[in-house]
Design a protein around this nucleic acid. Structure first.
Lengths: 197, 197
DNA sequence: TCAATATGATACGATACCGTATCGTAGCGT
DNA sequence: ACGCTACGATACGGTATCGTATCATATTGA
């Protein structure tokens, strides 16, 4: 199919081979660099040095430094799987304990403040930040919706408030008070929020 | 008093006059610049341009760019007054509504992400961040302590968890979900947390 | 008034980074 | 095997910033 002529060169289908490898190498290094120093100290020259890919080549694939940063940031969207324990409390506990586990360890947790800061003044980063944010909240929203469907949760419950009440305290400890996020803390938060539904 | 000799030159007491003015002008401009662009884009040259104070003079008062940034950041610690309505709920409501009002408007709320980001890798900023953080939590801790003293709150309540449960959702909305922080939301959070005590 | 001292203006060296140009080389698909 | 294309190495111009040096000027306090 679509093998009509040999002169038919679909550029986007020809990207296989070296190009793919270069892009991958650069993006991986870029993400690593971001994790270490944040957006501010991110440098194309440093990506080139570390990855071994010539700066010329990098600029052949990304028109500008910012484009590369944005591309690397986009790789940061966490793919969380949604649990299904049968009860709202079980689901919420599974999700929050997973996040509590990731917050002190995952690479994205080191980059996120940088993105939040940049997003404060740069619409493109605000968009990325928004996507990341929705990614974090999505599993919670899903299990909450299921609870509504089961009749376990009132249909007029304000999801947005509940999500903020659940995620807020965890994020607060990670980036503001810098206190450890242990299981008792997570359970206490969950208990508080679910008790009030 | 202490006017003993005219030859007595206490250097630190002689800083009056031009020095004071220069320092003040520079710090004010520096803070303004920080509010606009964050720590990353902060530049001594720009402070000089805007303030009209020669770069040479700036470097006479601060040994390095970072010293100036840190000094300017230190001006950011919010002095919040502690309410005393007689009830825990009243006090907490007053504090959180004040914060909810400040979060979208106050200068420090634009700089804080930058400090959080920098603090992630720089101990000096981690220290500043810690001070700012304690400043935010202090009023809450005080009214909670008063509630304990009145017997309104159990003495073995975990203050740290309560503070996180109260401030976390507000901060979450300001910097992560970027949703508005209106009075109903604040009241909902307070209700949830206080109901569980 | 006068001397000490803080300031301003300017220039400078050093460094780092962005993004481009050039040209030779290596790998890929056919 | 061969040609197209991506890649690497290198150099470059331009800009921005840090922090210092120098010297003239203004301000202050006695």
């Amino acid at each position: 199919m679509t093998t009509s002529k040999k002169s038919e060169r679909v550029p986007s289908a020809k990207v296989n081979g070296r190009v793919e490898r270069s892009r991958y190498t650069v993006l991986t290094t870029a993400f690593e660099l971001l994790s270490e120093g944040g957006v501010a100290s991110f440098t194309v020259d440093e990506v080139s040095r570390r990855s071994g890919v010539a700066k010329t080549t990098i600029y052949r694939h990304w028109p500008t430094r910012e484009a590369l940063v944005i591309d690397a940031c986009s790789r940061m969207i966490a793919e969380q799987e949604v649990p299904d324990t049968g009860t709202l409390e079980g689901d919420v506990t599974a999700i929050l304990e997973e996040i509590a586990h990731l917050l002190p360890t995952a690479n994205w947790s080191f980059v996120l403040p940088s993105i939040v800061d940049t997003a404060e003044r740069n619409p493109e980063f605000a968009e990325i930040h928004s996507r990341i944010q929705r990614g974090h909240a999505a599993p919670l929203r899903e299990v909450l919706q299921r609870a509504v469907d089961r009749g376990e949760l009132s249909a007029d419950a304000d999801m947005s408030t509940i999500v903020a009440a659940l995620l807020g305290p965890l994020f607060y400890r990670r980036w503001f008070s810098r206190e450890p996020i242990d299981v008792p803390f997570v359970k206490a938060i969950i208990k508080r929020v679910l008790a009030s539904l």
